[in-house]
Design a protein around this nucleic acid. Sequence first.
DNA 1: ACTGCATCCTGTAGCCACTACAGGAGCAAG
DNA 2: CTTGCTCCTGTAGTGGCTACAGGATGCAGT
Lengths: 134, 134
Amino acid sequence: MATIGEAARRSGVHIETIRYYERVGVVPRPARTDAGRRDYSKADIRRLGFIRRCRDLGFSIADARRLAALTSDRQGNCPDAQAVAETHLADIRARMEALRGIEAQLAAMVENCARRAQPCPVLEKLEEETGRTA
Amino acid sequence: MATIGEAARRSGVHIETIRYYERVGVVPRPARTDAGRRDYSKADIRRLGFIRRCRDLGFSIADARRLAALTSDRQGNCPDAQAVAETHLADIRARMEALRGIEAQLAAMVENCARRAQPCPVLEKLEEETGRTA
DNA sequence: ACTGCATCCTGTAGCCACTACAGGAGCAAG
DNA sequence: CTTGCTCCTGTAGTGGCTACAGGATGCAGT
């Protein structure tokens, strides 16, 4: 059993974030000491680490909650976990695609700047009358 | 001179977003009709389109405001616009890098799922005791 | 026993860039 | 004159934290 500070150190989740996770129900409420302080079990701390790894991989809190709920019976729910991961992977790839497009446009603008083009290529491009990109 | 609805259609910025932009001061307050309705000039609408193109390229509102302020005297301020664009480009590239790492990890997990690995590779990976990725 | 500091508690407000109402007023066509 | 569209203001919600304010507790050193 550990204080919130120890749980934070061991799980890699900030104290304030741990309390936030508790508030939104993505981690269960831990035990309390007689004085009313949070008291974390090893399982609690493992759960915090699980959520952090989900977040590091870009999963939403809602997805992290879903994935955590699947950890109880592993075998049967693998298709569910796989579906969550695949949907997220598709989303990540879409975001990369969008960034690639932006990157290309910005790179072109900056390159024209380097060529000392006149007038300013950045502002020229932004003043262009275009339809929506998105 | 145009209503907010026309300005929205022509600039590609939603009505609610236009009012939001006015509130945060990234576009100037437009004229008003006698009845108190917003009345947009061509310059106003151009400015809205400018801001939208900035946002489409991922610039923050603060950057969009800075860039818009530079449009008055073009030649002299090109280095300023270039600096804003270059900083943003670096940020975009960093984000792409982060997504690439995530994409690789997710792709590996999902691929193992396809191989019918046991136990569930997605949950296994998330339960690993790791140091922080970020 | 007392002092001082670290850590903990709750609750609230701020961040970004919108988005979604609620509740009301005007305006143009049939 | 009614219907339905657009417009107005103001406020609250989204996600995922982060940063206080203002107080209580715990523990080490003297």
